[in-house]
């Protein structure tokens, strides 16, 4: 699923940029540096914003396009921060055949952003995940750590509204 950048502005917490500089310095000049640097950078920041990708590109002597090409290829990388509350809709086979697609559509509509992205206010992010191992409860979603199973699409709005208030 395309990893489209949203508009949440980037700001680094104290020490994060210094950590990134150290990681880049450690891999500079080594072949195959891109993947491990990106992985460590994502551990530092939680995601890979444009600003971080530019620093990595400049630091490793690559172009931003080359770095972004790798980031957008692998699903493990995200260009968006996680929301304060995360909604995960399981798209594993069992959930999928039980209508997870419709559940996801309702979630996207209610929250107002697409899977793989975050709302402008940073409150919610949505993930379409692989099998979470709760096939007996299919279809399943997890909202801010709470598991909801045997869902029907009509229940989605009500559940999410509880989290929107709090």
């Amino acid at each position: 699923m395309p990893n489209t950048k949203t508009v949440v502005p980037f700001s680094a917490a104290p020490g994060q940029l210094e950590k990134l500089d150290a990681v880049i310095a450690g891999y500079k000049g080594k072949p195959g540096a891109t993947m491990p640097v990106l992985q460590e950078a994502q551990e530092i920041f939680g995601y890979l914003p444009e600003e971080v990708q530019i620093k990595i590109a400049e630091g490793l002597g690559l172009s931003l396009s080359e770095v972004y090409g790798v980031v957008s290829f692998y699903t493990q990388f995200s260009v968006n921060p996680k929301g304060r509350k995360q909604v995960s809709v399981c798209m594993g086979t069992a959930c999928y055949v039980k209508g997870a697609g419709e559940i996801l559509e309702r979630v996207e509509k209610k929250i107002g952003c697409k899977a793989g992205s975050v709302t402008e206010d940073g409150q919610f992010s949505i993930d379409a995940t692989r099998c979470i191992g709760a096939c007996g409860l299919a279809p399943v979603m997890i909202v801010d750590g709470d598991v909801y199973g045997r869902l029907s699409p009509d229940q989605v709005d009500g559940i999410l509204e509880k989290y929107m208030k709090g």
Binding site: M1, P2, N3, S63, S65, E66, Y68, G69, S72, F73
Partner: peptide, 13 residues
Amino acid sequence: SVAVIGPNDRGFD
């Protein structure tokens, strides 16, 4: 050595 274009995303995308 400009490299401003490249393949983005994966598979059919």
